[in-house]
């Protein structure tokens, strides 16, 4: 496991602390302050994120929602170190990732962040097993056997470990992707529309797996979705509109999320 933050946070003052951030900064898994992302320049400039402050507590399951073009994918990319913000700051655990160089970002992604993508994104030439342990292999580490067995058992992948992605159904592929995200015990798992390419039954399975990872092992999960049913598996829904925070729903249900989205005027 990763060490706890070694030094108390000195950055944000109480006044500057975002309103929606209930958990204390020291227990935050992911945090952003004034995160802004502008694509293009001059007249062609498009502001995808406009001063977003957000804080995700450890061991929580957060969904990010919003209409198309609200900036939810950009937010995810910037928080995960896949994309660099134009201004503002972001932290994963106690590490400020804005300002990190490409090599450090690569290490951070490898060691402390897990990803689940809409299109599964398994490496086609590797088996399920090899795909699942890929981040560990990239780091030159061996998976903890007990943890491996637990994750694989929980995801029901035992029978399929030596198949290639092309020999598996979409739901199975996505479960391998979830295993790949969970195995290194990252600070946070980012899921980008993880049910977008799945039928509702397979989608429900994957969401339940993510939720149980949060409840039973204290994993932090941040998920971008536009599906209110998917969002209802989360503990908290953060709403975005036009690149700004536009509200939150706690203990969401599909109905409460729908009405909150409707209230955005979407």
């Amino acid at each position: 496991m990763h060490p706890a933050p070694s030094a108390p946070m000195t950055g944000p003052t109480a006044a500057a602390r975002p309103a929606g951030s209930r958990p204390d900064a020291t227990t935050a898994a992911v945090r952003a302050e004034g995160l802004t992302k502008v694509h293009g320049r001059g007249d062609a400039a498009v502001t995808a994120l406009d001063g977003v402050d957000v804080c995700v507590g450890r061991g929580t399951f957060t969904a990010v929602m919003g209409p198309s073009g609200s900036g939810k994918s950009t937010l995810l990319h910037c928080l995960a170190g896949l994309d660099t913000a134009t201004s503002g700051r972001a932290w994963v655990g106690s590490t400020e990732i804005t300002g990190l160089r490409e090599k450090q970002l690569t290490r951070l992604r490898r060691d402390r962040i897990g990803f689940v993508f809409q299109s599964f994104n398994l490496v086609p030439v590797l088996t399920a097993h090899e795909n699942a342990v890929l981040p560990l292999a990239l780091a030159g580490r061996q998976p903890d056997p007990a943890w491996f067995d637990e994750v694989v058992g929980r995801l029901g992948l035992g029978q399929r470990l030596h198949h290639r992605p092309s020999e598996m159904s979409g739901g199975q592929q996505q479960r391998v992707a979830v295993a790949r995200a969970l195995l290194p015990r990252p600070d946070v798992v980012f899921a980008d529309e993880p049910t977008g390419n799945l039928d509702s039954r397979a989608g429900a399975e994957v969401l339940s797996l993510l939720r149980s990872a949060v409840r039973e092992t204290g994993q932090t999960v941040v998920m971008v979705t536009h599906d209110p049913v998917a969002a209802s598996y989360a503990e908290r829904v953060v709403l975005l509109a036009d690149g700004r925070l536009a509200g939150e729903v706690h203990a969401p249900t599909a109905e409460s999320v729908l009405s909150a989205l409707a209230a955005l005027g979407g």
């Binding site: 896949l82 090599k103 690569t106 992604r109 993508f117 994104n121 490496v123």
Partner: peptide, 16 residues
């Protein structure tokens, strides 16, 4: 392209 992006996202250094 997508696969290469994935490897980079999962933390494979550009050198690798």
């Amino acid at each position: 392209r997508q696969e290469l992006g994935l490897l980079r996202a999962l933390g494979q250094p550009a050198r690798d």
